[in-house]
């Protein structure tokens, strides 16, 4: 096994570890730190793929990913927390232990489902593919089980990191233009969610999503 393949496995492992850690921590501030870490891991994946295929444009993608996902987006979330201290608790609907067990089951599921894809082309990138899928599922789990609006944003970012990782690993890197478009969408989504969170806080005095139940017709 070459050096690069080992590096790729390491980056993918870190990527998954960060997702699990976000599930484990209840404090949103700590979650954003792990989110930064995950962004760096994702950028590393892109860079390693670029080195492997000798495609310099992927370095640009990696730099962009690092800038956006490791720095900009976590900062935006952290600044939203600073406004109100009580929002730091992510208030899960099921406790952390059960969440971690569920995450184990989801990772197993992702690995089982991705088997045919791995068999299709047995490269290090394809072998790492289930990691991306697992992170997508863990992101969805966070969206479903966390009460506060801010932790919803974290779940959403996790989901998107997972999708991006699958795109990198399955298509051996994404063109700069596509990644640029996706990033712009993501940035807008996070900004809109931040505005929504702030409005909710003004209207209801808290950011618990279940308060919105009365809004249906």
């Amino acid at each position: 096994m070459s050096n690069r393949a080992e590096l790729l496995d390491l980056a993918a492992g870190l990527f998954l570890l960060c997702a699990v850690a976000i599930l484990w921590r209840r404090d949103v501030r700590a979650q954003t730190a792990w989110l930064s870490g995950q962004g760096i891991a994702l950028a590393a994946i892109a860079a390693i793929l670029g080195a492997q295929d000798a495609r310099p444009d992927l370095y640009g993608v990696a730099a962009g990913v690092a800038l956006l996902r490791a720095a900009l987006l976590p900062t935006l979330v952290r600044r939203a927390i600073a406004a109100r201290a009580e929002d730091r608790e992510s208030a899960p609907l099921i406790n952390v232990g059960a969440s971690l067990l569920a995450a184990v089951a989801l990772v197993l599921l992702a690995y089982t489902v991705a088997q045919p894809l791995v068999r299709l082309e047995d490269t290090p990138a394809a072998r790492a593919l289930p990691v991306g899928l697992s992170v997508v599922l863990i992101g969805l789990l966070i969206l479903v089980t966390r009460r506060k609006a801010l932790s919803q944003i974290v779940g959403f970012l996790l989901l998107d990191n997972g999708i991006t990782a699958v795109a990198f690993l399955a298509a051996a890197g994404v063109p700069l233009l596509v990644e640029f478009g996706v990033s712009f969408d993501l940035l807008l989504a996070v900004l809109v969610l931040r505005v929504l969170t702030a409005r909710m806080r003004n209207l209801f005095g808290g950011s618990d999503l279940d308060e919105m139940r009365e809004l249906r017709d």
């Binding site: 969206l143 479903v144 089980t145 009460r147 279940d210 139940r213 009365e214």
Partner: peptide, 11 residues
């Protein structure tokens, strides 16, 4: 009306 429930259906 619970957002979590709707997300849960999808998940």
């Amino acid at each position: 009306g619970s957002v979590h429930r709707y997300l849960g259906y999808g998940f």
